[in-house]
Amino acid sequence: MSKIIVRSTTITPREITTKTGTKMVFREQAAAILKDGEDFPHPFRLTLDDSQAPYPAGEYQVDASSYSVGRFDNLEIGRRVVLVPIVAAPPVPAATTR
């Protein structure tokens, strides 16, 4: 399974001007995806909602709510990707001998 890595809670605003002259501000957070079978992660930017807190540092997977089936039956990922933490399995206690 591929995983998303977040290392910093820094939010970077990105401002654009639309064709109509309206200014829009996007809030972005740096992340990276580590694909199965690859040695190095690929950096990308997560776009956050206006009031959304940044994701804490950690490892995540993409939530199923981020996917949809498009108009021509293509798999699509929405504009806002939702991440869920990857919870580490609890350690297995060592067997005791008697």
Score class of each variant (00 low, 15 high):
residue 94 A to H: 02
residue 32 A to Y: 15
residue 86 I to F: 05
residue 66 S to M: 00
residue 13 P to V: 04
residue 37 G to Y: 08
residue 26 F to L: 05
residue 90 P to M: 02
residue 31 A to E: 00
residue 90 P to D: 10
residue 58 G to R: 00
residue 38 E to W: 12
residue 24 M to P: 09
residue 35 K to E: 13
residue 60 Y to C: 00
residue 83 L to R: 03
residue 3 K to H: 10
residue 33 I to E: 14
residue 80 R to I: 02
residue 57 A to N: 04
residue 7 R to A: 07
residue 65 S to V: 15
residue 23 K to F: 13
residue 37 G to M: 02
residue 31 A to I: 05
residue 70 G to I: 10
residue 1 M to S: 15
residue 89 A to Q: 10
residue 59 E to Y: 06
residue 6 V to S: 06
residue 79 R to I: 03
residue 92 V to P: 12
residue 34 L to R: 11
residue 7 R to H: 07
residue 10 T to N: 10
residue 70 G to N: 06
residue 88 A to L: 13
residue 53 A to H: 11
residue 66 S to C: 03
residue 53 A to V: 03
residue 8 S to A: 03
residue 36 D to Q: 07
residue 7 R to K: 04
residue 53 A to K: 10
residue 20 T to Y: 06
residue 74 N to D: 15
residue 9 T to V: 10
residue 12 T to S: 08
residue 73 D to A: 13
residue 3 K to Q: 04
residue 63 D to V: 00
residue 33 I to S: 13
residue 11 I to D: 05
residue 86 I to M: 13
residue 4 I to D: 01
residue 41 P to W: 10
residue 72 F to C: 00
residue 50 D to K: 11
residue 89 A to M: 02
residue 39 D to E: 05
residue 65 S to F: 01
residue 69 V to G: 08
residue 10 T to S: 14
residue 85 P to A: 03
residue 98 R to F: 15
residue 57 A to R: 03
residue 38 E to K: 11
residue 47 T to L: 04
residue 31 A to F: 09
residue 96 T to H: 11
residue 36 D to K: 04
residue 91 P to V: 02
residue 51 S to R: 00
residue 79 R to L: 01
residue 59 E to V: 02
residue 74 N to Y: 11
residue 66 S to E: 07
residue 29 Q to M: 09
residue 43 P to F: 08
residue 63 D to A: 07
residue 19 K to F: 12
residue 43 P to T: 08
residue 76 E to W: 13
residue 10 T to R: 07
residue 97 T to R: 11
residue 49 D to V: 00
residue 20 T to P: 05
residue 54 P to H: 04
residue 15 E to T: 12
residue 50 D to I: 02
residue 95 A to I: 13
residue 75 L to K: 05
residue 29 Q to C: 11
residue 23 K to H: 10
residue 72 F to L: 02
residue 41 P to G: 06
residue 23 K to I: 15
residue 50 D to W: 06
residue 98 R to L: 03
residue 92 V to T: 10
residue 1 M to D: 14
residue 61 Q to Y: 10
residue 22 T to P: 00
residue 83 L to I: 03
residue 52 Q to N: 08
residue 29 Q to G: 14
